[in-house]
Simulated assay, not measured.
Amino acid sequence: MLRYSADAALEPRGFTRLLDASRCGDEEAWSQLVRQVYGDLVRLAHRQRSEYAVPATLGTTGLVHECYLRIAGGARERIENRRHFFSLASRVMRQVLCDYARTSLRVKRGGLQQREDLDAWDAEARSEAEDLVYIDELLTQLEAQNEAWARVVECRYFAGLGDEETAETLGIALRTAQRHWSDARAWLAERMR
């Protein structure tokens, strides 16, 4: 279960205070905010990595750092609050994992020829990577039709959050999160047949 730090700076007002200060150019405030959420990001990344067949070259730390670089590189200015930060982090980690899966599936040199690989990247891992890419494509379609459902799927499927954590992260009622999850699963199941 993803738990936010009990530190006062991570309370909504403290997080927002640090976020506002960082927007005004206070890099120390941004650094302090990142230090305080780093453990939660590591747990989120670890959960995502353990869920999918990700080759060892993309470790938990690598996933967290790639997430940080993408958020700090421009998305940081649009972060509204703590919930939005973790929702964004889940989405960014999904993108990183899917990008990595796509890259891993590409055959280097030789076009569409199949290459024989004797390392850890076996048929099962390849199949999981293909599934991950396919689900990402479906989720992109779902986003176009119902963004709220897509956010819930990201939290549940990609971040491994439960009902209550998803509701908290997205700032919606528990029952709404459950209903969106049920509707989104039905939508996805229909297209995966």
Rank of each mutant, 00 (worst) to 15 (best):
D163H: 13
E116Y: 13
E28K: 11
N81D: 14
Q95W: 14
Y52N: 11
R185D: 09
E27S: 15
Y68M: 11
I71R: 02
L188I: 12
V152P: 01
C155P: 00
D7L: 04
A186D: 07
A144S: 11
A129L: 01
V153I: 15
S104P: 03
A189Q: 15
T166Y: 03
G25S: 15
A123S: 14
Q95N: 15
S127F: 11
I135D: 01
L161A: 14
R115T: 14
A120I: 05
Q113C: 12
E165C: 02
S5W: 00
H180E: 05
K108I: 09
L88R: 04
L139A: 08
L139I: 15
R106W: 14
Q113R: 13
S90H: 09
W121C: 07
A144L: 09
A148N: 07
G160A: 07
M192Y: 14
G62R: 08
W121P: 00
R23L: 09
R70E: 11
S22R: 02
G39C: 01
R17T: 13
C67G: 05
V92E: 04
Y100E: 04
R76G: 06
A123K: 11
E154F: 00
L97Y: 03
A125F: 01
G62W: 03
I172Y: 05
S90V: 08
R179Y: 09
E77D: 11
R35I: 05
A148C: 06
P55T: 12
V54C: 06
E11M: 08
E147G: 09
G110E: 10
L188C: 07
V92Y: 02
A173N: 07
R47K: 10
G25Y: 11
P55H: 08
I135H: 08
P55K: 05
R106S: 11
G74I: 03
Y134L: 04
W121L: 04
L142R: 01
R106G: 06
E116F: 14
G162M: 06
D40K: 02
A72G: 10
Q145A: 15
A9M: 12
A6T: 10
A177M: 01
Q178P: 01
R106M: 12
D131Y: 12
T176P: 03
F86M: 06
R49T: 07
H65A: 09
C67V: 10
G59W: 04
E80N: 06
P12Q: 14
C98W: 03
A148V: 11
R179N: 10
L69N: 04
T60D: 06
H84T: 07
S87F: 06
S5A: 10
D136F: 13
V34N: 03
I79A: 03
I79G: 00
V152L: 02
L105S: 09
S5K: 07
C24P: 04
L138E: 07
R70L: 09
V42M: 05
G59A: 06
S182K: 12
R191Q: 05
Q32H: 14
G73E: 04
V34F: 08
V54G: 04
Q145T: 15
L112D: 12
R76F: 07
A173L: 09
Q32P: 03
R47D: 00
L118P: 03
Q178V: 12
R185C: 11
L97G: 00
A29F: 02
Q48I: 05
V96Q: 06
H65M: 15
